[in-house]
Computed example of a mutant assay.
Amino acid sequence: MKKAQHLDMLPFEAEEVATSIGKKIQLARRARGWTQSDLAAKMGVSVNMIVNLEKGLPSVAFGQVVMALWVLDGLDVLREAARVDLDPVIQQEALSRLPQRTRGSHG
Rank of each mutant, 00 (worst) to 15 (best):
26 Q>F: 03
61 A>W: 06
3 K>F: 15
90 I>L: 14
95 L>E: 12
22 G>T: 01
11 P>A: 11
52 N>R: 00
19 T>I: 02
91 Q>D: 07
101 R>T: 08
89 V>H: 14
77 V>I: 10
29 R>E: 06
46 S>L: 00
41 A>N: 07
20 S>G: 09
24 K>F: 05
105 S>V: 07
80 E>P: 02
80 E>C: 06
104 G>A: 08
74 G>R: 03
5 Q>R: 14
31 A>P: 10
29 R>N: 03
26 Q>V: 02
48 N>A: 15
13 E>V: 14
63 G>R: 03
50 I>E: 01
86 L>N: 13
75 L>N: 10
78 L>W: 10
87 D>Y: 07
48 N>I: 13
20 S>P: 01
62 F>L: 15
92 Q>T: 14
75 L>M: 15
5 Q>P: 01
12 F>C: 02
71 V>A: 11
73 D>H: 05
44 G>F: 07
102 T>W: 13
48 N>P: 09
57 L>S: 10
20 S>I: 03
100 Q>W: 12
6 H>I: 12
83 R>V: 05
8 D>C: 10
64 Q>H: 14
46 S>T: 01
73 D>N: 11
26 Q>H: 06
15 E>P: 00
94 A>C: 11
50 I>L: 00
72 L>F: 00
73 D>G: 07
105 S>Y: 08
36 Q>D: 08
41 A>W: 05
72 L>P: 02
70 W>C: 09
58 P>R: 06
27 L>Y: 04
44 G>P: 07
45 V>N: 02
70 W>H: 15
65 V>L: 09
79 R>C: 13
42 K>V: 06
54 E>S: 00
66 V>A: 15
102 T>D: 12
64 Q>D: 15
64 Q>K: 09
77 V>G: 03
51 V>Q: 10
74 G>I: 07
84 V>C: 12
45 V>Q: 05
78 L>H: 13
44 G>V: 10
28 A>T: 04
36 Q>V: 04
82 A>N: 14
71 V>G: 14
31 A>S: 15
48 N>K: 14
70 W>P: 04
62 F>D: 06
80 E>H: 09
82 A>C: 09
64 Q>C: 04
102 T>K: 15
22 G>N: 05
84 V>R: 11
104 G>N: 10
52 N>S: 04
96 S>V: 05
20 S>N: 12
57 L>A: 09
